[in-house]
């Protein structure tokens, strides 16, 4: 996983609640067996007109937001399907952080596994950042994971919470499978213990 330390970039406003993963990347683009190349389909239904041309009204089709590195939205961002294609599409487009009052659970986890930082801030803060971001040229934010602050365009430092485990993994770009495998002996011991406790549990063989 790519490290996340500090990010400064254009923030794009998406002032809507319940932006689901079907909206972030519709199912028909999930037929890939790769993680890359999904950026062109990010927000497909919003970003393109029925004839395939760009929708000039959609924020990511406008300057300076084409270069956005950060998204700001409202409640329950990334709700719905477990598709990791959603964070993959965001990353492929260039987004490394999403700020919202709350996130869909699985999406939140999926972001953390991919070095994309989901930042929870209270709704009024998100509203304020969205207003700032709508000013375009001044839409630059800094997200500092080490200090756990978002620094707004006017220099105000807004603190956010993240659990220490994920912070550590992100700051160091760690692979959590490697970390878990350090406990392989404990997993084996657990398996033996449960095998003894629940000998009736059959293995799966077709």
């Amino acid at each position: 996983m790519e490290k996340f330390t500090t990010l400064t970039g254009i923030a794009a406003p998406l002032p809507a609640a319940n932006i689901d993963t079907d909206k972030i990347i519709p199912a028909r683009f999930l037929k890939t067996i790769k993680r890359t190349g999904l950026g062109v389909h990010l927000f497909d239904a919003l970003r393109y007109l029925p004839d395939g041309r760009e929708n000039p009204d959609f924020v990511l089709n406008k300057e300076p937001y084409r270069q956005a590195r950060i998204l700001i939205a409202y409640e329950n961002f990334g709700c719905g399907s477990s598709r990791e294609h959603a964070p993959w599409a965001l990353l492929d487009f260039g987004i490394r952080a999403v700020i919202a009052p709350s996130f869909g659970d699985i999406f939140y986890n999926n972001c953390l596994k991919n070095g994309l930082l989901p930042v929870r801030l209270p709704k009024p803060r998100c509203e304020q950042l969205i207003t700032d971001a709508q000013l375009g040229a001044n839409a630059r934010l800094t997200v500092d994971l080490e200090r756990q602050v978002v620094i707004s365009a006017n220099g105000e430092a807004i603190p956010f919470e993240i659990d220490p485990f994920h912070k550590h993994m992100l700051l160091n770009g760690l692979d959590d499978i490697g970390l878990t495998l350090q406990h392989a002996d404990k997993i084996a011991r657990y398996e033996q213990m449960k095998q003894a406790e629940k000998p009736w549990l059959p293995p799966l063989h077709t």
Binding site: S82, N109, N110
Partner: peptide, 10 residues
């Protein structure tokens, strides 16, 4: 519960 692909690999 549902998980993402990184967790599937995990």
């Amino acid at each position: 519960f549902g998980i993402g692909t990184s967790e599937v690999e995990h």
